[in-house]
Amino acid sequence: MTNILNIKLIRNDAKMPYRANEGDAGLDLFSVEDVIIPSGQSALISTGIQMELPKGTEAQVRPRSGLALKHSVTVLNSPGTIDEGYRGEVKVILINHGKEEFRVEKHMRIAQMVIAPVFQVELAQVSDLTQSERNSGGFGSSGK
């Protein structure tokens, strides 16, 4: 697997994703537009980039903790998955859970993107599954 993420800027005002600090897992994604997101509403925000992911990977689009803490703004479908074969513009769905409108400004860091390996599996239909200690215990079943 190669570690090269090919990025194409499709707008003159687009910014390359980047890591704020060496060793960070996430690459910051930037808005290329000014958008107002009313309280309780969501918006699709353009980044002005397209990319070609390395074979066997996905991009996970995740919230920025600062936006979540300071403004109650987060990525709606977190983490949003971008599949290896997608070549369209990277866009981010932001939702404003805050009490006031939120202004997305051009070149603002709006999300972070983590490139992760994808484990491909073969599907097998079976009539029985092996038992486990947890079995069908679901939400809250661990008692913690």
Rank of each mutant, 00 (worst) to 15 (best):
M1D: 13
L5D: 10
I7S: 05
I10F: 02
R19M: 15
A20V: 11
D28E: 13
D28N: 14
E33A: 09
V35R: 13
V35W: 14
I37M: 05
G40C: 10
Q41G: 01
Q41A: 08
S42T: 13
A43G: 02
I45P: 00
T47N: 08
T47V: 12
T47Y: 04
T47M: 07
G48F: 00
M51E: 00
M51F: 07
E52V: 05
L53W: 11
T57H: 12
E58K: 15
V61D: 04
V61W: 03
V61Q: 01
A68K: 11
A68H: 02
K70S: 10
S72R: 13
T74D: 11
T74W: 12
T74I: 08
V75W: 03
L76E: 08
L76C: 04
S78E: 03
P79R: 09
D83N: 10
G88R: 09
V90G: 00
V92C: 04
V92E: 01
I95V: 14
I95R: 07
H97Q: 11
F102I: 03
H107G: 00
M108W: 01
R109N: 03
R109L: 01
I115K: 07
A116S: 14
A116W: 09
F119Y: 10
Q120D: 11
V121D: 07
V126K: 09
S127L: 05
S127V: 05
L129W: 03
Q131F: 05
Q131P: 02
R134N: 07
S136A: 01
G137Y: 01
G138C: 00
G140L: 01
G143V: 02
K144G: 03
